[in-house]
Simulated scan of single mutants.
Amino acid sequence: MKLALFDDYRLGVVRSSPDGDVIVDVTAALPGPHDPDPVTAGWWRGLARDFDELSGALRAAAEDGRARPVSEVVLHAPVLGPSKVIAAASNYGEHVAEMHVVQERTLGRVEAWMMDFDVFLKAPSSIVGPGGRIVLPRDVVAAGHEVHHESELVVVIGRGGKDIPVEKAMDAVLGFTAGLDITVRSAADRSRRKSYDGFSPLGPYLVTTDELGDGSDLDIRLTSGGTVRQSVNTRDMLTPVPAIVAYASSVMTLLPGDVLFTGAPPGVGPITAGEQLDMSISGIGAMTVTVA
């Protein structure tokens, strides 16, 4: 199922049509009243936890409801109020190789420990939706630091859990979306460099695991001004999604609605004000963000 949050943080089911994507409002099929306040909207985390039980009612509502073109609505990030945003580091071999060059240029040295797979945290307040803006921080620009794009497959946690076995990891996942892990290249802590407001664009939709499986064969593509910056398939991940989920859960309890970036593919590079980034993942969709 392809889900979206739109307008007054309503829940929609999206499907393709000959004239483009259409969306059906299925909010009324959710249990309890709808809370449009993103600060207090616990219904979203409840949906993530209880999706298996609610999916039948959502599908029925999508069949019976009136479809509108997606172009007529305002899409938000397809997650709401996650307790945390987790990100995987060093998960594509070619990216690890290119980071030796990037770090020599931006830091004057290579931090060997950063070349190993691991997870870290980003601020949930860094999330923006498709069509959002990435604002380059004034202090970062003044210091002359580069700010880079990293286009990634993003996992959205469903029921979650602690110490989840690899073979059961996908049972804890709701689905996938596309994301940009925007990064300042400096000597600061990873979480600080990646947590500025607007540094986690997500969208346009969340696609559940019944359609995308474990996310192991999806094409990621990022262009700017018609130039391809990143193009990779998720089969090239060093640590696949189930193993990332299992490992992250060994460190921290994964809660319903949590977000997990799966690592940057090769081709990362600087972004500049006025630039437009177009990102897509096969089976999920495309989004455009601007740099300001």
Rank of each mutant, 00 (worst) to 15 (best):
E94G: 00
W113D: 07
I86N: 13
K84F: 02
S90P: 04
V96S: 05
P82R: 04
G65E: 03
Y92D: 08
S71I: 12
G93E: 15
M99S: 07
E63C: 00
A60W: 00
R109I: 06
E94D: 14
V110N: 12
M114C: 13
I86F: 10
M99R: 10
V85A: 03
R68C: 00
A62F: 00
V102L: 03
W113Q: 14
L80P: 15
A88Q: 02
S90A: 15
A97M: 07
D116P: 10
E111W: 06
G81D: 04
W113H: 12
D116Q: 14
V70H: 03
G93K: 11
N91C: 06
V102G: 00
V96I: 15
M115K: 15
A62M: 02
V101I: 08
A112P: 04
E72C: 08
V110H: 12
E111S: 11
R105P: 02
M99V: 01
R68E: 10
K84C: 11
V74M: 10
V79W: 05
P82H: 01
H95A: 00
E63M: 01
I86E: 10
M114H: 13
V102W: 10
A88L: 08
A67Y: 01
V96P: 06
G93C: 00
M115F: 02
D116T: 11
R105Q: 15
I86W: 11
A77N: 05
A112G: 08
E72A: 12
M114E: 09
I86P: 07
A60D: 13
T106Y: 09
A97H: 07
M114G: 11
V74R: 14
H76Q: 12
V96M: 10
A67S: 03
A61C: 04
L107W: 05
H95N: 04
P69S: 09
M99A: 03
E104I: 03
R66C: 04
G65V: 08
A112Q: 07
R105K: 13
A88D: 03
